[in-house]
């Protein structure tokens, strides 16, 4: 249903550019009516938006929120895993380390980036970049957007489980400020590996869950087709997670999703990141680590 609404909106907006007078007025009214239907979305509709092919990717966030990005490739052990993008950049003139899952905007890119599903090397690159951030006292900002780590043979041979475990360990004691932003899909341990942060922000229509809804339905009910039902019972929306205290703030999106007006999301996020970085920069390393420990220690107590 959300799919049809969005495609009708696309059509109307394309026509608005070339229509005048009463006909234009009618189109505007139709648009309003369609947007009104996007005001209250179900969990399944939000998951649809979280996976929307035009949803802003990490490249866009880096381009819009940072300057002077310098990409750092490779895990220094095996290979470069392009499903993780990371490097150094300036945020309002201050150096930070930026790391996130990378999805593509078309099929070719998605194949190249393995649909944002990292292997062990991706998570070892994450560790390398975080250790370096600590050495040079740079805050770390992560962008989470993955269905999960890649369940393949090579990933298992190279210990993707161990690589994620070490990310969790490392992040829990990092001595610099850390902020994670769940921008699209927050699927499973492969997402959490970038998520043990001082502040966790989440876009309004992103999801964050123990598994993808399909994987969840498949494990519990042996039926991946019961995705819609899974979306409801999993409590995976930003609103649910804010209620559980798993995330700190919801970043609002334009009605109909971030892909409709990405600039509005960039501005909201920019303000939130500045605010939290200012707050966290005022804390010494010991206080940061202790507060982060308490934050995760109290989840599900």
């Amino acid at each position: 249903m959300i799919r049809e609404i969005l495609s009708q909106l696309d059509e109307i907006e394309a026509m608005l550019g070339v229509t005048k007078g009463a006909e234009r007025q009618s189109l505007l009214e139709q648009r309003e009516a369609l947007l009104a239907r996007c005001e209250k979305l179900t969990a399944e509709q939000k998951v649809f938006l979280a996976r929307h092919p035009r949803r802003p990717r990490i490249d866009a966030y880096i381009h819009e929120l940072f300057t002077d990005f310098f990409e750092q490739k490779g895990d220094r052990a095996n290979r470069e895993d392009p499903s993780i993008l990371g490097g150094i950049a300036l945020f309002h003139g201050e150096p930070v380390t930026v790391i996130g899952h990378r999805k593509g905007t078309d099929l070719n890119e998605n194949v190249a980036y393995n649909f944002g599903m990292p292997g062990a090397e991706g998570y070892r690159k994450v560790q390398r970049l975080m250790r370096q951030a600590e050495k040079f006292r740079r805050p770390v900002i992560t962008f989470i957007d993955t269905p999960g780590a890649y369940p393949g043979m090579e990933a298992e041979e190279r210990g993707v489980g161990e690589a994620i475990a070490q990310c969790l360990s490392l992040m829990s004691r990092l001595s610099v400020p850390t902020i994670a932003v769940v921008t699209g899909e927050g699927g499973s341990g492969g997402a959490l590996a970038l998520g043990v942060a001082d502040r966790v922000l989440m876009l309004e229509n992103a999801y964050y869950a123990v598994l993808t809804p399909e994987g969840f339905a498949s494990i519990l009910w042996k039926d991946a087709g019961r995705r819609g039902e899974a979306c409801e019972v999993m409590k995976l929306t930003a609103q649910d997670l804010h209620g559980y205290g798993v995330i700190d703030e919801i970043i609002s999106e334009p009605v109909g999703g971030a892909q409709r007006k990405p600039q509005a999301v960039f501005e909201t996020l920019d303000e939130a990141l500045s605010r939290y970085l200012d707050e966290l920069r005022g804390m010494d390393a010991g206080a940061l680590i202790a507060a982060r420990y308490d934050k995760f220690r109290h989840m599900g107590q």
Binding site: L168, S172, S188, G189, L192, G195, V196, Y208, A209, V210, M234, K235, L236, D240, L241, Y244, V246, F296, R297, M299, G300
Partner: peptide, 10 residues
């Protein structure tokens, strides 16, 4: 659900 995932972090 997510509370279970957070036990990995804890």
């Amino acid at each position: 659900g997510i509370i279970s995932l957070m036990q990995m972090a804890k």
